[in-house]
Amino acid sequence: MTTHGTLPTPSLEFAFDVAVDLGPLEDHGVTSVGHRRVVPILGGRITGAIDAEILPGGADWQIVRPDGTIEIDGRYSARTADGDLLLLHAKGLRTGVPEVLERLGRGEDVDPASYYFRTTVQIETAAPTLSHLQRALFLSVAQRQADAVRYRAYRVG
């Protein structure tokens, strides 16, 4: 077996904060892939290395596992002040003990340290000045609120 030296340890560097405004959850019931829910994205804001308005029309296409863990698959667009468009794709997990998940399901404000909500975020854009965002992965720590999701994204180095 050939070795290629020591692999680098990834680092995290703050990149941007996101606040996503959500519409009412649509429960599609148990489909061929599991318990499907869709949460419409109504708008929001990105600040930090990116400053952009989140556009209405995206959604989070969720699968709820039997243990209550939610598989996150959010896709939405944003527009910068210069008019550049971005497509963000957040994929991850939200899980915790049943009592905490029930409180979140009721829309209660729950300390984000009491549950696990992490996503990876990939960005797609045609804007030359933002193309560097397509060559990085971002890891986020998120919080679910009654009608919003907030997350802080870090560039994985």
Rank of each mutant, 00 (worst) to 15 (best):
M1H: 06
T3H: 12
T3A: 13
S11Y: 01
S11V: 01
L12Y: 06
F14L: 13
V18S: 04
V20Y: 14
V20S: 13
D21V: 15
D21M: 06
D21K: 13
L22F: 11
L22E: 11
G23L: 08
P24E: 09
L25P: 01
D27Q: 11
H28A: 11
G29N: 12
V30I: 11
V30Y: 03
V33K: 11
R37K: 10
V38S: 14
V38C: 09
V38L: 12
V39I: 15
P40N: 00
P40V: 01
I41Q: 05
I41Y: 11
L42G: 10
G43T: 13
G44F: 07
R45W: 02
I46T: 11
T47H: 03
T47N: 04
G48D: 07
G48S: 10
A49M: 14
A49S: 15
I50A: 11
I50D: 15
A52Y: 13
I54H: 14
I54V: 15
L55G: 11
P56H: 14
W61Y: 11
Q62A: 09
Q62L: 08
V64F: 09
V64R: 10
R65V: 01
P66Y: 05
P66T: 07
D67R: 05
D67I: 01
D67Q: 10
D67E: 08
G68S: 10
I70A: 06
E71L: 15
I72W: 04
D73A: 09
Y76N: 04
A78Y: 14
T80W: 08
A81R: 14
A81L: 14
D82W: 00
D82M: 07
D82H: 09
D82C: 01
G83D: 15
D84Y: 06
L85Q: 05
L85P: 03
L86K: 15
H89Q: 13
H89P: 02
H89K: 06
A90S: 06
A90D: 08
A90N: 04
K91W: 04
L93G: 01
R94Q: 00
R94W: 00
G96H: 04
V97P: 05
P98T: 02
V100G: 02
L101Q: 02
E102H: 07
L104K: 03
G105L: 03
R106N: 00
G107M: 13
G107S: 10
D109E: 14
D109L: 15
D109S: 13
V110E: 05
D111E: 08
P112Q: 05
A113E: 01
S114D: 14
Y115T: 03
Y116D: 00
F117V: 00
T119R: 04
Q122H: 05
A126F: 07
A127D: 08
A127L: 06
P128Q: 06
P128C: 02
L130S: 12
S131F: 09
H132Q: 06
R135C: 08
R135A: 12
F138L: 04
L139F: 13
S140I: 01
V141H: 03
V141I: 12
A142N: 11
R144G: 01
R144P: 02
A148S: 12
A148L: 07
V149T: 15
R150N: 00
R150L: 03
A153W: 07
Y154R: 05
R155Q: 01
R155D: 00
R155G: 00
